[in-house]
């Protein structure tokens, strides 16, 4: 059967990548062992390397990106599916698709040369007035608050905003597609019962499109976790866990691979593969959770 062959081929490609990652990573993993998950330093030259700090940075960038991206894409998807009409809708759909194709290197340059300078005052403001929340504090090792602009550059916050904007189109497309499939009968029924537009969206469109929301968010999260070039251009990589999101310095697995690939020895390359493998496994877990949620949601269920 053709479809079965296609499915097998897909799995074959996917497993080949996973297998290849594991084999190439085994050299490094056999040296570091479990310390790979707890060590913060990344120095394959001295055989002390681990992914703790890099992973923390990756996750913090991705979470900030989600905080920026999900509300934006949810709002835009609903705008396109339920508020805008006619020609405007077609135009917006095309624009979203176009935005998905803006090369990441352009986003990186834009983030580096335009956004960073303009976002620093905001970051300073947040850290000044919300510094009592540990996440927003920006302090040096001694604990004194920093106010210098250079303490706020190249942070997870800035990288997260740029990555968030990059993943919005992907998320919007998936969500919009799900929302537009919400049954007309139920929409009309809600409106006929006197619901306002938002009431209809809340009770019909969003529950129906929940699968799309989660699916889109996960797709975006996947891209945010794996985004390379834009993060690569913005962050200042550090190898300690930085819990202060507004403070300069963070890290990301894929940016690390891109940064270190060119000058890595065979062993260093193996260590980078191991980092890629860990990221791969984490996204596998996240996505598995998401797909089980989607499977249980009402999305696509029979309605009329």
């Amino acid at each position: 059967m053709v479809t079965f062959t296609a499915g097998t081929t897909t799995v074959g490609i996917m497993l080949a990548v996973g297998l290849f990652l594991s084999i190439r990573a085994s050299d490094a993993l056999s040296v570091s062992g479990f310390a790979f998950l707890t060590e913060q330093q990344w120095s394959p030259e001295t055989q002390t390397f681990g992914i703790a700090a890099i992973l923390a940075g990756t996750v913090s960038i991705a979470l900030i990106a989600m905080c920026v991206g999900v509300p934006l894409s949810l709002g835009t998807a609903l705008l396109i599916s339920d508020v805008a009409g006619g020609r405007l809708r077609g135009l917006l759909v095309t624009l979203v698709d176009l935005m998905a194709a803006v090369p990441s290197v352009v986003f990186g340059l834009w983030g580096l040369f335009f956004l960073q300078g303009n976002v620093i005052p905001v970051a300073q403001w947040i850290s000044t007035y919300f510094g009592w929340i540990p996440l927003f504090r920006v302090a040096d090792d001694a604990g004194t608050a920093l106010t210098d602009a250079s303490a706020f550059t190249s942070s997870a916050f800035i990288a997260g905003i740029v990555v968030g904007l990059m993943v919005v189109p992907t998320q919007t497309s998936v969500m919009r597609e799900a929302f537009s499939q919400a049954p007309v009968g139920e929409r009309e029924a809600a409106l006929a019962l006197g619901s306002s537009r938002w009431g209809m969206i809340r009770t019909v469109v969003i529950p129906f499109g929940r699968g799309g929301i989660i699916g889109g968010t996960m797709l975006g999260l996947g891209r945010a976790l794996g985004e390379t070039i834009a993060v690569y251009m913005i962050i200042s990589p550090i190898f300690t866990i930085n819990g202060e999101l507004l403070k300069t310095g963070t890290n990301s697995v894929s940016a690390l691979i891109a940064l270190r690939y060119g000058e890595a020895s065979e062993f260093g390359l193996s260590a980078l593969m191991a980092a890629g493998l860990v990221l791969f496994i984490i996204t596998l877990v996240v996505n598995f959770t998401a797909s089980s949620i989607v499977a249980r949601s009402r999305s696509g269920a029979e309605t009329d």
């Binding site: 499915g7 897909t10 799995v11 996917m14 497993l15 080949a16 990548v17 290849f20 990652l21 996960m218 797709l219 999260l221 996947g222 891209r223 976790l225 794996g226 390379t228 697995v253 894929s254 691979i257 891109a258 690939y261 593969m273 890629g276 990221l279 791969f280 996204t283 596998l284 996240v286 996505n287 598995f288 998401a290 797909s291």
Partner: peptide, 20 residues
């Protein structure tokens, strides 16, 4: 199983695709 694998792969860092 295929769906799980495909879902997991959506997050494959693009640079790893290149390395592969």
């Amino acid at each position: 199983f295929v769906r799980t694998i495909a879902d997991a792969m959506t997050a494959l860092p693009s640079i790893v695709a290149g390395l592969f």
